[in-house]
Nucleic acid binder design. Structure first.
Lengths: 208, 208
DNA sequence: ATAGATAAGTTGCAATTGCAACAGACAATT
DNA sequence: AATTGTCTGTTGCAATTGCAACTTATCTAT
C-alpha cells in the first residue's frame, strides 16, 4: 500500500488545518457559480469542503470538456497548470459548494514553527492533485469506451468493500470526463450489462 | 505568466541540488533498461539528468500505453500514483539515461537548516509533475486526432520563438502518447499538411 | 559495407464511435 | 398540480478511427 495516496481519503479537520496554516478564507458558492478562472494572472489555491465542482476546459472551437472534478478534500488551482495553457479553463460549481481559498504563496511560505506538519500536509495535498491527474490520464489513454469505463470503475471501487460503486458524476458528465460521446457510452454500458461484466442502474454500478 | 511553471525549464544545477539535499544516488541506465517498477511496495523518486525515459502502462489485455515521458529535470515516482493502480506500470529507458534516485521519505523529510529553499524546490518539482499530467489530460480529452496533435504542438511551442518545434518523441511513440493509432495519426498529419495548418517533416513541425 | 532492426509513410477495409434526433423518467419551481 | 428543465435511455446513419499489411527510409551494430 502506498501510504502517500490520498485519493479516497478525507481526513477529519484537513480543511480546518489548511485554513489555520495558510489563512485561507471560507467561501460559499451556489450551483453554476464560477469558482475560479484560469485566464488571469493570480494563482489562488482552492480546497473543497463540501459539494462538487468541475474543472472545465474550452478549446478554440468552443467545445467543452470536463478535465477534472473536485469533491471534499480535493485541491485545485492555477499553480497546477502548465505555463501558457492552450485552452480556456474555469472551475464551476456543479452543486452548492463550500471551500477554502488562499494564494499559492501563502500555502507554500508560512508556518515556520510547525513547518514539518505543514510541509507534510502541503505535499500530501499537492501530490493528491498529481495522483488524480495520473488516474485521469490512465483512463483517457484506454483506446475503447469499455476499457475507459472499466478503468474508471476500478479506480473508484475501494478494495476492501464489495464491488458496488456509486459514481459521483451523472452519466452525461461521466461521458464528458472520460471524453466520449454520451450516447456511445450509454450503448457501451448496455452492452457491458448484456455481456455480464457489470450490473448497472444509472450511477449505481456493480462490477462482476 | 505563471511563475510556478517549470514545464519547459531546466535550471542549471537543479539535479545537483536535489542530490545534495536528499542524498540521492546518481545512476546510469542503458537503452531498454527498466528504471523503476511500480508493482512493488517501495516509493522511490527519480529525477532525470540526461536521456529520455517512458512511463509505460499495461492493461489487463496486455496493451501498452505511453502515459508520460521524462527528460532532463522531470521527476517521477510511485508517490505520484493513486493507491491501488489498476494496471501495471514501469519506467523504461528509451535512450541511455542518467538520473538521481532517492526515497520519497528522504525527499520530503530532510534539510532542516535550509528548509525554505528545500521546500520551494520540492514543491516546484512536485508541481511540475502535476503540470505535465494536466497537459497530458488536456491533450487526451480532445476528441479528434487533429485536435490532440494541435493541443500537443501548442504546448510544446515556446511563445517567444518561431513556431517551429522539434518533437522529443518519435512519431510511433507520439501516437502512443496521445493514445491513437499510428497509421491514423500519420494520415491526419498528411491531411493537416494538405490543409496548410502545419508544415512537417518527421519530428520537425512548423505551425502555421 | 552489409545485414538487421527500427521508424516513416501509405492504403483498403472493417468497426467503433460520434452525431442527430428522438421518447420517457425524474427533479425542481411556481 | 402543472410546467419546465435536466437527465436517462435508444437507434439509424455517417464518419472517423483502428487494424492489417505493405513499401521505403533510416539508424545501428558487427
Amino acid at each position: 500500500m502506498n501510504k502517500y495516496s490520498v485519493l479516497n481519503e478525507n481526513p477529519f479537520g484537513r480543511q480546518k488545518d489548511f485554513a489555520k496554516m495558510t489563512g485561507a478564507e471560507r467561501q460559499t458558492y451556489k450551483k453554476n457559480d464560477i469558482i475560479m478562472q484560469f485566464d488571469d494572472k493570480r494563482s489562488d489555491i482552492g480546497l473543497m469542503e463540501t459539494g462538487l465542482s468541475y474543472l472545465v476546459g474550452i478549446n478554440a472551437a468552443g467545445e467543452k470538456n470536463i478535465l477534472d472534478y473536485y469533491e471534499s478534500g480535493n485541491i485545485f488551482g492555477n499553480a497546477f497548470f502548465p505555463h501558457k495553457p492552450v485552452n480556456l479553463y474555469y472551475v464551476i460549481a456543479k452543486t452548492k459548494c463550500t471551500l477554502y481559498k488562499c494564494t499559492y504563496d501563502n500555502m507554500i511560505n508560512c508556518c515556520r514553527d510547525d513547518y514539518i506538519e505543514h510541509t507534510k500536509m502541503m505535499n500530501e495535498l499537492i501530490i493528491s492533485s498529481a495522483q488524480r491527474k495520473q488516474m485521469h490520464v490512465d483512463i483517457l489513454s484506454q483506446r475503447t469506451i469499455r476499457n475507459k469505463l472499466l478503468t474508471y470503475f476500478r479506480y473508484i471501487a475501494k478494495d476492501s468493500e464489495e464491488q458496488q460503486i456509486h459514481i459521483p458524476l451523472n452519466l452525461s458528465d461521466l461521458a464528458d470526463y472520460i471524453s466520449v460521446d454520451r450516447s456511445a457510452m450509454m450503448r457501451e454500458i448496455k452492452n457491458m450489462n448484456k455481456d455480464g461484466i457489470i450490473v448497472s442502474k444509472g450511477q449505481i454500478i456493480t462490477l462482476k
